[in-house]
Structure formats: structure tokens, C-alpha cells
């Protein structure tokens, strides 16, 4: 039996596949400048997706989450300098980020609300200082380089474009599966009411730490690819909280607690700030600030959140009407 829901589901899948195919071939039609912008959008969408899993779904705002971005970037750089190929270096960097997230997760995820957010900021700062001072391994405050890719810039652009695109798509698919699974109900119950969740049989500690590890996994891969893409990284850049504040803004604009939200949010914010950069460079910070305030006030559920709310309310209205006419 094919229900209406199934039909809609199939239509959505076709739309998504079509969009992915378009994006795969898009670099053939646009200049290097736009390829770079899209690469950044995919990267931000990935990080924003991770913030969304933690904050939008689980209610824990990991303000210092950029630590995993930095760890991913630095571990990749170090391992690649030791001669490992990129497809081994980045997974190993990712593994180290996961281990860090689990070790830190047990104590820090006991903290709630503000305290959790601030403790992660503190941890990020501490890790950054370690990276700045472990000069022999990390190159210190002046940063470090990745091996240079021997290829024409055009090829390099496309290489990173496709890498970030794949990362965004895989991240979003995994998030979709996670939040709609039984485990996902556990995650959402923690946001809804952690004590009630625990007394309903949800192992909240395990759920929180695992969720943070998933978020660390994808963020650290983004960090590794970013570092290789930039070919040079410095601590105050890859541990910059700005990555997270931007990702939070993207999540809010697109719609927290939805899977498409962070992707749309990344597109909107990056496009707007690109325009702001080129058009009103002097005002771009203020423009971003004002835009954020406007969004938070007028579309608090974000673009996708507002749309899904509308659809849900229509359904309830319809079912009420149906009830009236039937009864």
C-alpha cells in the first residue's frame, strides 16, 4: 500500500538526489571564485549540522565545539607531514577527535545549560594554548603547513569542492538517520526533559557522550579537509570561536532541529556575507549582527522550521475540520 506520506517521501528523495547531481556538475559551469564560496558553504553546513545535532536536537550548546575542527586540522597536518596519505591522515585525526570528545564528554556533559556551553569554551581555549606552545610538534603560534598538492589550481579547487560536498551530504544523511532512529528519540527526549528521559529508561549519559562524539567526528573531518584546502593553518584561526558563532547563526536562520535547516542557513548566511563583504566591506560585521537580530526576532524557528510548523498546523486544522463534518 502506497500512502500519501510514502509518495511525498519518494518525491523528496528524488529532489535531493537531483540537487546532489546538479552540485556535482556545477563546478564545470562556474569560476574558481564561486567554487571556493560553495566549498566554504558545504563546510559551514557540515559544522552547523553538528551544532544542530547537539543544540537543536539535544539542547546542549557546544560553544567550544571548534576544538574538534582544530584538532582535525592539526592532527591531519601532523600526520601528513609524517608522510601519511590524506585518506589515512584525516580518518586518524578524526579518531583522535572522537577520543577527546569521549574523554571530555563524561565530565563536561554533566553540566547543563550555560555551564556546559562555557566549559566547552574553556576547554577549547586550553587546547588552543597547548597547540600554541607545543612548538616542536605543531609549529606553535605561527602555524603549520600541509604538503602542497601538485596539480593545477583548477583541479585543486574541484577536488576540495567535491570533498566538502560529499562531507556535507554524508553528514546530513547520517544526521537524518540518527535523529529519526530510536537513538534520536533519546536525543530529543534529553532536550525535552532530561530527568524525565532518564526515568523513562534512556541512558542519558551514554546518549549525550555518543551524540557529542558523532558531532566531533564530522567537525574534525571538516577541519582536516579545511586545513589541507588552505594548506596553512594557525591556532588562533582553526580554534576561532567565530566558526561556531557563524554555525549557530546558520542553524537559527535555517531552522534549529531540522536537517535541511543548517544547509539552507549556510547558503543564506554565506551568500549574504559575501555580498556584504564585496559591497559594504566596512559594515559587514554590523550587517551580520543586525541581520542576526532581525532573524532571531522575526523568524525564530528559522526558514525550514517555520515551513514545517505551517504544514503541521494545516494538518491539525484539516483533521479538526474533518472531525466536525464527520461528527
Amino acid at each position: 500500500m502506497v500512502t500519501q506520506d510514502d509518495n511525498k517521501f519518494n518525491k523528496n528523495i528524488i529532489l535531493i538526489i537531483a540537487a546532489v547531481i546538479i552540485f556535482i556538475f556545477l563546478p564545470n559551469f562556474i569560476s574558481g571564485y564561486y567554487i571556493r564560496i560553495f566549498t566554504a558553504i558545504f563546510m559551514y553546513a557540515t559544522i552547523s549540522q553538528c551544532i544542530n545535532l547537539m543544540s537543536g536536537y539535544m539542547g546542549y550548546l557546544p560553544f567550544g565545539h571548534v576544538m574538534f575542527f582544530g584538532i582535525g586540522a592539526y592532527m591531519s597536518a601532523i600526520l601528513m607531514k609524517l608522510g601519511l596519505p590524506v585518506f589515512i591522515a584525516i580518518p586518524m585525526a578524526c579518531l583522535s577527535a572522537i577520543i577527546v570528545s569521549i574523554i571530555l564528554g563524561f565530565p563536561v556533559l554533566r553540566l547543563r545549560g550555560h555551564y556546559f556551553a562555557i566549559a566547552t569554551i574553556g576547554m577549547n581555549g586550553a587546547i588552543m594554548t597547548v597547540v600554541q606552545n607545543a612548538t616542536e610538534i605543531t609549529g606553535g603560534a605561527r602555524g603549520t603547513t600541509f604538503p602542497i598538492i601538485m596539480a593545477s589550481p583548477d583541479v585543486v579547487y574541484r577536488y576540495f569542492y567535491l570533498a566538502m560536498l560529499s562531507l556535507m551530504v554524508i553528514t546530513s544523511l547520517v544526521m537524518h538517520v540518527v535523529v529519526n532512529s530510536k537513538f534520536g528519540y533519546g536525543i530529543r527526549s534529553i532536550k525535552a526533559n532530561e530527568d524525565a528521559a532518564n526515568s523513562m529508561g534512556i541512558n542519558t549519559t551514554f546518549t549525550k557522550v555518543t551524540t557529542w562524539a558523532i558531532a566531533a567526528l564530522f567537525t574534525s573531518i571538516a577541519g582536516g579537509i579545511y586545513g589541507y584546502w588552505m594548506s596553512f593553518i594557525a591556532p588562533d584561526e582553526v580554534f576561532d570561536l567565530m566558526f561556531i558563532t557563524n554555525s549557530i547563526i546558520m542553524m537559527l536562520i535555517g531552522g534549529a532541529g531540522t536537517i535541511l535547516g543548517p544547509i539552507f542557513g549556510a547558503f543564506i548566511v554565506e551568500t549574504v556575507s559575501e555580498v556584504a563583504w564585496s559591497g559594504f566591506m566596512q559594515y559587514h560585521l554590523a550587517a551580520l549582527g543586525i541581520a542576526t537580530i532581525v532573524i532571531v526576532f522575526f523568524v525564530p524557528r528559522g526558514v525550514i522550521g517555520t515551513i514545517t510548523d505551517k504544514i503541521r498546523n494545516r494538518r491539525i486544522e484539516l483533521s479538526k475540520k474533518a472531525e466536525v463534518t464527520n461528527g
Partner: peptide, 9 residues
């Protein structure tokens, strides 16, 4: 999330 991001803005 909202108060944090607005004060940041």
C-alpha cells in the same frame, strides 16, 4: 541560544 547569539550580534 537566542540570548547568546543576540549579545554576540
Amino acid at each position: 541560544v537566542f540570548t547568546l547569539i543576540v549579545t554576540f550580534a
